[in-house]
Simulated assay, not measured.
Amino acid sequence: METAEFTQIAGNAALVVVDVQRGFDEIALSVARNHPEADERIAELIDVWQASGRPVVFVRHDSAREDSPLRRGYSGNDFKEYVEERRGKGGGAEVLVTKSVNSAFLGSPDLAGWLRGEGIRQIVVVGIQTNWCVETTARMGGNLGFDVVAAYDATYTFDVEGPFGWRLSAEEAARAAAVNLHGGGFARVVTTAEVVRGVG
């Protein structure tokens, strides 16, 4: 799955960890997901970022829907344990962004403003779900002029149904998102190993 192209990761590139929350473990009990190793990959990248003193953005989805496992005040809204135990442990800048829509750039505080204030031009996006909040955040980051890298195997999603009875498996939905991002020029879609190699 690796590409031949070397991915250079800037010394101040921000890792944007999108919606790695307990509620998705509940969803996985009834809906098939892909990338069973994704949580491992996300944890690895947080560790690499914190060890190198690079900035980390933790994004939390505060759903306004009363039936959502990500709703505020419910345990599913919390970050997964491996994320929570890493927060505040790095030597670099860190920020928590909360949102109620797909894009982390439409949350609070203003992510684009924070990144620009820190002099950050490159972001590496990981998290859940590949074809929803990860893809939307990466697309918008590209539109706003950031150099966006998406670590494909450090994301996952679920089977999904669309119009006309069309269904995509989790892997099909994730691949479609990756093709949209990479083929559309919004982001470079690479593997975790490529990102780690680019950190140097």
Rank of each mutant, 00 (worst) to 15 (best):
L168N: 10
N12M: 14
A151N: 10
L181R: 00
M1K: 05
G145H: 13
I128P: 00
S30G: 09
E94P: 07
V83Q: 03
L111M: 10
R65K: 14
E172L: 08
R71D: 09
G185K: 00
S68T: 12
R197T: 11
E2M: 12
V160H: 10
V57I: 13
V125R: 00
L45G: 06
V126Q: 02
D153M: 01
V31R: 14
A138F: 07
R72A: 14
L45N: 07
G200D: 11
Y82A: 03
Y156I: 00
S68K: 08
S52N: 08
S108T: 08
E161F: 04
I9Q: 05
N180G: 03
F79C: 01
T3H: 08
A13Q: 12
V199C: 10
T137H: 03
V97F: 06
P109F: 12
Y82I: 04
V18Q: 04
D39P: 02
A93L: 10
G73E: 14
T7D: 10
R197G: 03
Y82H: 13
V57F: 06
K80M: 14
V83P: 01
F24D: 01
R175Y: 10
D147P: 04
P163Y: 11
E161T: 13
I120F: 05
D147W: 11
A93N: 13
A43F: 00
E135M: 12
Y74V: 08
V179C: 00
G185V: 01
V17T: 15
W132R: 04
G200M: 12
V97E: 07
E135W: 01
A150V: 15
A38G: 01
N102A: 11
S63Y: 09
R188E: 01
G23Y: 12
E94M: 11
R33V: 07
E84F: 07
V196I: 14
S169E: 03
F79G: 01
R65P: 05
R87K: 14
Q122D: 05
D147Q: 11
G76A: 03
L106N: 12
P36M: 05
Y74F: 13
R188W: 00
A32R: 15
F58K: 07
V20S: 06
P163A: 15
N12V: 06
G92R: 09
Q122P: 02
F105W: 07
E5C: 05
F79Q: 04
S75Y: 11
A4G: 15
F164P: 02
V195P: 04
R86Y: 08
A178P: 05
I128W: 02
A51M: 12
D78I: 01
V17E: 13
A176Q: 13
P163N: 09
A32N: 12
E172R: 10
E161I: 11
R188C: 02
A104D: 06
R41M: 09
E2Y: 03
I120W: 05
N77G: 11
